[in-house]
Structure formats: C-alpha cells, structure tokens
Design a protein around this nucleic acid. Structure first.
Lengths: 347, 347
DNA sequence: TCCCAAATCTGAAACGTTACAGGTAGGCTA
DNA sequence: TAGCCTACCTGTAACGTTTCAGATTTGGGA
C-alpha cells in the first residue's frame, strides 16, 4: 500500500467522528479507514464491495447521519432529484393547485425527490417555463396541465428526451405518460342525468378554450347524450371555465332571463358552478325546480351550499399521485405506454 | 504570457461558438480569449475587470444564452437559490395553499430563486421538514405557516442563522420576519358589526387549536367587542378550523337547534363558514333573519352563495408576496425588525 | 532610463460526488 | 513455483463555479 496514510484512521477499525461539520464521503472514508470511492460504492450496494465493508460503511453513515450532498451529485451526474410542477396560475379551478401539490407530495415524500412549483401566467408562452427547465437542466421530470391536442410542450420534451407526465391527453400520435379524468364520460353522464330528470333544453359550460384537449372530450360526451335523448343543446360559446366569475354570473343571468332558456346545465368546474348558481338565482329561478345543474367538482364546497346540485367528483389529489408515480417510473425508464391512466367520474 | 494558448481563441477577438453543449464559463472564456476566472468576475461586475472586457464578456454570454450552472454555484458557495415553502397539508383553508404559492411565485419569478413546496402532515413533527432543510442545506430561505406563540421552528432557525419568514407572529422575544393578518382587528370588527345589527348572543368559530398564535388574537379582539357591547359570548370550544367540515355542520345544527342558541356568529375561515351555513340551515334557520354570520374568506366563494354573509377579506396572495419579499431581503442581510408587516381586514 | 503602483488578468485549488482505469492480495491452476 | 484469476479496494480526474494568491502589463514619476 503506497498511500499517504498519515492522518487516516487505521483500516478495519472505527474511529470517533470529527468536527461538527456536515459529514461527507470523506468523513466516512476517514472514519472507516477506506477510500472515498469505496465508501461511495458501498453506500449504493455496488457488487464489487465486500459484504463486511458495506455493512460497516452503511452503519457509520447512519450513525453520523450522512446525507449525500445534492450539489455534488448533481454536478457530477446531472441528476437533480427534482420534479417540477408547471402550472397555469389563472386556470386555478378551486383547489386544483393545492390538491395537485399535495397529491404529488404524498408520493415524492417517500423518495429522494423534491417538488418545485413553477407557475406561469396565461398571457405568457406556456413553452417558456418548459424551455427554461430543459435548458438549465433544473429538473429530472416535469408534470404539466392544460394539455392541448397538439401540444408543443409534449413535442419539445419528447424530442429532448426529458421525462414528463401530463394532466390530460394529447392527440398527436406521441406516446407519453398522462393521467386524465374521463371528461367524455362525465359530460355524457351529466347530460344523461338531466335527461332523466325530464330536462330537454340543455346547456353546457365547457372547459377552457377549445385549445385544451378535454374541451373536445366534454363536447363529445355531451352531444352523444343530447342525440340519444333527442334533446336540444343550447350553446353558450362566449363563456367558459376561464371566464371571470363575475362575467359568468352576469351572462348566466342574461341567458336564464331570456326566452329560450335551458332547463338543465352541465358545468365542468366547481368554481364556475358557483357563479352559475348566482346567475340563475339572480334571474329569479330556483335550482331543482326551474332548472337542474350538474357540476364537476374537486372539493366539497358545492355539496354544502346547494344540495340540489348533482355532483360528479374529480379527485385531483388522486390525479397528483398518479402523475407523480408516472414521472418517477418514466425517469426509471418505464415505457410511456405503460404510464397512462384514466379516472372516472364518481357520484 | 506563459500560457498554453494552443487551442484558445486570439485575445480581444471573438470567435464562433463551439458545439451544441450547454455553454459554461469555459465556453465564454474560450470565445473571448480570456481566463475562466476573468469571465466569472466580468459577469458579476467585479471592480477589477476592465469596462471593455466586461462588455465583451457580457455580450457573448447573452448571445450564446449562458446560464450559470446551479449545481456548480451551489457546490462552491452553498447558495441554493431555493426558497422552501413548508406547509401543513391538513390545514388547507380554501385556497390558502394556491394563493400562497402564486403570491410567492409572483415575487420569485423576478429573481433567480425557485420555489419548492414541502408539505407535512399534522400528525408529524413540524420540526422535521425544517430540520431536514437545514441539515441538508437545501434552501436559502424558508417560509412557514401555523406559527405558534412559542415556536420551536423559529427558535431552531434563528439559532442556526437560516433566513425565514413566518405567516403569523410569535410571542417569544425573538425578532424575525413575518407577515400577519390582523386577526384581532378582524374579530373585533366582526363582532362589532354583529352588535350593530342588534345581535347580542354571539359565538365565534375560532382558529385552529389554541397552539397557533392567531387563535389568541382572535379571542382578544372578540372579547373586547363583546365587553364593549355588553353582549353575551357563546363558547363553542369543541369545534375549530381544523375540525372536519362534516363535524362542524353537525355540531352547528345541534347548537342552533338548542335553547340558548347564538344569534350572531363570527367565523374565521371561509371553508368552515360553508359548513356553518349548512348547519344553520339544517336547523331550519335563515341567515340574515334568525342569525347573522360574519366570516373571513380568502376567495370569492362565500359572497356568491350567501350574499347575506358579512365578509372580511384576507388576501393570502398578498401575504405570499409579502413573505417572499421578506425572506429575500432577510437573505440579503436586512434586519429582521424591518421585515415585519401586518395586513388589515378589507370589507 | 528605471522602478513602482495600479489596473487587469491569470492558473490552481476547492466544494462533494461518481466514473475510470487501475492496483493488490490471496487462492487456485498448471 | 510461476502464473493467473477473482475479489476487493484504490487514487485521479472531472462536473462548473468561485476564491486565493499571484502574474503581467501599463503608465507615470523620479
């Protein structure tokens, strides 16, 4: 052994831990009388390290509370241990963000991953935060929402080989991990349930601008039900989920005061439903009597206020969990086609 | 010059940018015919670098889209450029998390800082995520909520010299950055407004367990108003903001069906108010007639559903902005005593 | 002309980690 | 006994940055 063993602890023997500094591989190496490389390998159970050594090293590591330095690992390997949630700040549908965050965290908390949240405003290019993350390599995986049928972000990330999962589907022939709520089923069931109540002039408050994929799903489900029920669809193209609540209420009041007013409404956002209710009641009508309302919701609010409203639940927290699991597995190299899931409206 | 200038670009002359790899200081140094050190310094406007050189370096950096490698900086300096938001997942009061996140992001987006969110569950030790962050040095600053009068986290972080800001005040004689909503004023004004309506048997639905500081503020404001108005305070110690909505509703129904029922209620959480309303109406009473309700809210929901409810607004998004500004300035060494702010209930 | 200080610029080292390319010891085969 | 293989361990280099301790150049004063 031609090592400069001067101030290294004797091999195969432990030693008191030194100063109060944060322990590094070197600390452990010194204490165990081993080389840094060996320690590194021992901690990750590499096959070329002896059982006894591994045990010893792992014991010391645990005892002195060693935690790998993120910056060191990241600099060397490029691995960030970060999952980035990229959200549109405006399209905050009642509790979406929180539930998404908590769902994702539930999964990540059992892993070495951290969650960073990157909101962007609707006026900005949705690509911008994505490009930033990729260019600076600031995350190992991305979760994003507001997926569009032909989504530039999906294309970009796929081309760059960056793992991601989307909340919502695309229609561009690229396999990628996603989790989606079955909005077609929701719209269908919703309209159906209105038909069952004898309603036959039915309006739908659709998802945000037709740019977003699930808008199409909603329309598909809705028209199918309308056709089957031979009912009349009343189109209200000028308001959607992104419209301000004030405007939704005012417009609803207008429509509900008009001659050809709907007697049933399907609404696909909990917060919009609140404005709808306000508009309906401002027009002097009563829910459950003059008009029925079916809404999607992600929190409990609606049920409490107007029990007459029919509600199908979308569990965003569950979506968060699914999305987190999907990116993580994608990072581990699992095939994208195995990481696609759908959840169904619960009554 | 005894440098090995073999493959370095001629000094004082620019050169085409090389490969498609992510540019580093070395890339710029090569292109500018300078040393890496000089480039590093030039980019941060160090005084020992000539004007001309600085301009040249900064131009190149901009042209090739240079962005410092986070891991490199972090490894060398310990600076993470991360602000960590530590939240209790259970105490999610309607939109608190989202608004907080968006408020903070608004400020951080103009800086090199990123936001990471670390939720913990109420069963767990609140110190745990804090300790983790400090021990692993994973953030430059921390924002946390649910501040207690004697808060172990505040003590710990102060001792360790880690910058932080709290949403809520402490009462432990330690100066630290905070932002708080004036809950005493809220409770006082709320109770006052009920008195003004002629109500005189008033209950308050207080904040989460008395452990949290603002609970005291609420009680102080409330009792002051009650005394001044010579009214009767009705205590409901068994439900608070952390109680499940179901339980709040049931208990409210019980109370409101009882003989000595309040004719005015102060509620300090928007979501709890919803449950209160349900309970009140389940007891066959009408808000605005049999009983008046004042509530704090952080979103628009209440106003839409029961316009009779008197509402004081707490702007959580604004709190987020204030807190972000506070930590950032604290990181820059500003004195804690200058980073304390209060916001007042808006009608 | 010479020397000195100021103005600029420089390479080497270090942060903590992992990948690479060996090295050593011991046992087994021939 | 020599040679070789296996099992285990090793130091060095590199990731990109900043800090340290100079080095070089320039211009001015004597």
């Amino acid at each position: 052994m031609k090592t400069k063993d001067v101030n290294r602890a004797p091999k195969n023997e432990m030693v008191e831990l030194p100063e109060g500094e944060r322990p590094t591989l070197k600390t452990i190496a010194f204490m165990a009388g081993l080389g840094v490389t060996t320690v590194s390998r021992a901690l990750k159970d590499a096959p070329e390290i002896g059982r006894a050594t591994k045990n010893r090293v792992q014991l010391i590591a645990k005892q002195i509370g060693y935690r790998p330095n993120r910056a060191g690992v990241r600099l060397r390997t490029g691995k960030t241990n970060v999952i980035s949630l990229v959200l549109n700040a405006q399209s905050e549908i009642m509790g979406l963000t929180s539930n998404m965050v908590y769902g994702i965290s539930e999964i990540l908390s059992q892993t070495p991953y951290h969650l960073t949240v990157t909101p962007y405003s609707v006026e900005n290019d949705p690509m911008q935060p994505i490009r930033y993350i990729v260019e600076t390599g600031s995350a190992d995986g991305i979760i994003m929402s507001r997926t569009e049928p032909d989504d530039a972000r999906v294309r970009y990330l796929t081309e760059h080989g960056v793992p991601f999962a989307t909340h919502g589907r695309t229609e561009m022939g690229i396999e990628h991990p996603f989790h989606d709520f079955d909005n077609e089923a929701f719209a269908f069931k919703s309209a159906k349930s209105l038909l069952l109540k004898g309603r036959n002039k039915i309006a739908m408050m659709a998802g945000p601008t037709s740019a977003v994929t699930y808008h199409r799903h909603l329309e598909r489900g809705f028209s199918r039900a309308i056709e089957e029920g031979k009912a009349q669809a009343i189109l209200v193209p000028d308001i959607d989920v992104d419209t301000s609540l004030e405007r939704i209420r005012d417009r609803t009041e207008e429509i509900m005061s008009g001659s050809n007013r709907p007697d049933g409404i399907v609404c696909c956002s909990g917060s919009a439903a609140i404005a709808l209710v306000a508009g309906i009641e401002a027009a002097g009508l009563k829910i459950g009597r003059d008009v029925d309302l079916v809404s999607k919701q992600s929190t409990d609010v609606l049920r409490w206020f107007r029990p007459e409203i029919i509600v199908f639940n979308e569990d965003i927290r569950h979506a968060g969990r699914e999305l987190a699991r999907a990116v993580l597995r994608r990072i581990d190299g699992v095939d994208a086609s195995e990481l696609q899931s759908l959840s169904y409206p619960e009554e």
